[in-house]
């Protein structure tokens, strides 16, 4: 399913990052950084809420808006019952749509928001996502202090939150089109190899997007996938070539950009719903504003992992959503 938008613009973005992200190569681009995992709260879950609230405050501050000016807030995260979103929203107080789509939440939120703005159902909306490394480890994997060996393909959930402000008011970056993904499952059961789980769904979504809009991959200055990691990235490039005969050239993966893979203990790179927005909202957004990148396709990849389904020996499904952003020339 592909949509085209006429009248949706990305007005402002914000990023709140944790300690590992701050020490990564993009550290200086973030709006606000916490250097401890608790962010002044008592637990990791509450810390995630704190960051989510901060990211909303930050984007409102940067856009010079009040909470009352915002019609809708679309938000999601990785924890059970999307608790960070729900608890954060209790203090934010903007009408909320809570969504869950694992690590592809950010782009799904952008698509829902863009559709509503484009149809003039709302004037503007905020889209937020967050993730917390320790909170996610606790829920999906092993206790944080447990040092059992991890595979090289393991990804490291990012700690951070990010928000987007969409509206019909013209700005330099236009939301041009979007494609909603299909859940794919190619039988990978290894929850420590998320790149392999998600690569096929990213490939399907990119292929559908290009096919529906009759475009070549070279149309985009940058195709940016969410959190495939070092090995998933290689799998995707190979998969696209063998399956669809599409050569990915201007392609990168945010999992490989957010951390220093040589120096930081992050195995195959970053992951989590905050990974793609943290990289896009800081580094890529700035590059687009400067005019160094014109057309960017964001493909957020989500592994729909449930520990109990994995224990039942079922494979892990995944979904990816894509959204295309373009720099507009007709700005004042």
């Amino acid at each position: 399913m592909t949509f085209k938008y006429e009248n949706v613009y990305l007005n402002e973005v914000s990023t709140i990052a944790g300690p590992y992200e701050n020490n990564g190569p993009l550290g200086r681009y973030y709006d606000k950084v916490y250097n401890d995992f608790y962010c002044g709260t008592k637990t990791w879950e509450q810390a995630e809420c704190r960051m989510l609230i901060d990211s909303v405050d930050m984007v409102l501050y940067k856009a010079n808006k009040l909470k009352n000016d915002i019609d809708l807030h679309i938000s999601g995260d990785l924890l059970n019952q999307i608790v960070s979103t729900n608890y954060a929203s209790a203090s934010i107080g903007i009408p909320l749509i809570g969504i869950y789509s694992a690590c592809s939440t950010s782009v799904l939120g952008l698509i829902i928001g863009s559709n509503m703005v484009d149809k003039e159902q709302i004037r503007n909306c905020l889209i937020s996502t967050s993730s917390h490394n320790n909170g996610a480890e606790k829920q999906f994997r092993q206790p944080v202090e447990y040092g059992g060996p991890k595979k090289k393909t393991t990804t490291f959930t990012t700690t951070g939150a990010a928000s987007f402000l969409l509206s019909s008011k013209k700005s330099k970056i236009k939301v041009e089109s979007a494609t909603i993904g299909i859940v794919t499952d190619l039988g990978v059961t290894d929850s420590f190899n998320m790149g392999a789980v998600m690569a096929p769904s990213a490939a399907v979504t990119i292929h559908n997007h290009l096919k529906n809009l009759k475009r070549e991959a070279s149309y985009y200055d940058l195709i940016l996938t969410g959190d495939l990691g070092v090995y998933g990235k290689k799998i995707l490039v190979d998969y696209m070539k063998t399956e669809y005969n599409i050569k990915l050239k201007n392609y990168n993966d945010t999992a490989c950009m957010i951390y220093d893979l040589e120096k930081q203990p992050v195995y195959a790179g970053g992951s989590g719903p905050a990974c793609l927005p943290l990289v896009f909202n800081s580094y890529i957004y700035e590059k687009m504003l400067k005019g160094e990148l014109g057309r960017v396709l964001l493909v957020a990849t989500g592994a729909l992992l449930s520990p109990s389904m994995v224990n039942q020996k079922l494979s892990i499904p995944s979904i990816s959503h894509a959204i295309s952003l373009e720099v507009t020339d007709d700005i004042l």
């Binding site: 393909t153 190899n193 392999a196 799998i235 063998t242």
Partner: peptide, 18 residues
């Protein structure tokens, strides 16, 4: 791509543990 073929593709890019 069927599951077996994909398994081979994944194995090709999965690093060996030492």
């Amino acid at each position: 791509m069927d599951k077996n073929k994909y398994k081979e593709l994944v194995a090709k890019y999965t690093p060996k543990e030492n």
